[in-house]
Design a binder for these strands. Structure first.
Lengths: 139, 139
DNA sequence: TTTTAAATGCAAATGATTTGCATTTGAAGT
DNA sequence: ACTTCAAATGCAAATCATTTGCATTTAAAA
């Protein structure tokens, strides 16, 4: 468990601090994108304590190194997710915000064509699918 | 020109006011998603004046009626776009934020499958492709 | 150990968006 | 047209996620 966090921090080439390790471990422990505050609160639940600013700083750092993806959701809060095991898209419930990862990406094959057609250098994309989850469907 | 704005306001069933018409006309006049402030400034350029709060309120109103789509971009500002002529996706330059509409949607055929597979009622999706535009490529 | 740049915590600042409230206005009914 | 009144606007103040300045702490190189 600790290993991945250490590896990531080593790869980035920054100081291996407890707050950073804790943030990464929380990200590792879930399948869903988390907000900075989600992470902050989970850390508290673990009986530890990391300043919210530090959570943000760690997330920014990792986003800049492309180890974390940041997506601003319609509720105005950003969600963060490790990209270590490749990028993912999600099915998001518009009611309860539950988020289910999707196992494929319809863009992979298309990016090159789209880039060439528009003379862009494509660097990435973001896709989210919205709907009502099984529970919320039934009101 | 005025016709579409009037039609839209009639469809919503709200008061047909000058500020609302002006906001809609600005949205009509462009191909790219605009921020609330973009809209506010363009209205000023037209020599008119609409309060920024009113711009936000008009956009919210229309988003709730599904006549406008709202997307929060990585710069932390939301961009709004008329959906009257169907939804669109965009190629967005990560450097200058220029946005080019894309004429097709790779999701259309997939939504039903994804919904069934995950027991979700799909209501929509959001897709953006990022890259460097022709100008920014050359630094 | 010593040293030092990098990282943290805290409090205050920022900036987009929202809200409360007094005033104005569109449109329904006269 | 005129009256009426809920709905809409403008303005200023509030909100809230995120960022920043700075004094203190800490990882890790020497």
């Amino acid at each position: 468990m600790k290993r991945l966090a250490d590896d990531i921090l080593a790869k980035i080439g920054c100081k291996n601090t407890k707050p950073r390790k804790t943030v990464i471990e929380v990200l590792e422990s879930t399948d869903n994108p988390l907000s900075a505050e989600d992470i902050f609160l989970r850390i508290k639940e673990l009986g530890e304590s990391v300043n919210l600013s530090t959570v943000y700083r760690t997330l920014d750092l990792m986003e800049n190194k492309s180890l974390v993806s940041k997506t601003v959701m319609s509720d105005g809060k950003a969600r963060y997710e490790l990209t270590v095991d490749g990028h993912r898209h999600h099915l998001v419930c518009t009611n309860c915000h539950k988020s289910v990862p999707i196992d494929f990406c319809p863009l992979e094959k298309l990016e090159k064509d789209i880039g060439e057609k528009n003379d862009f250098d494509i660097t990435g994309h973001k896709l989210e699918i919205y709907g009502l989850c099984p529970k919320c469907k039934k009101e």
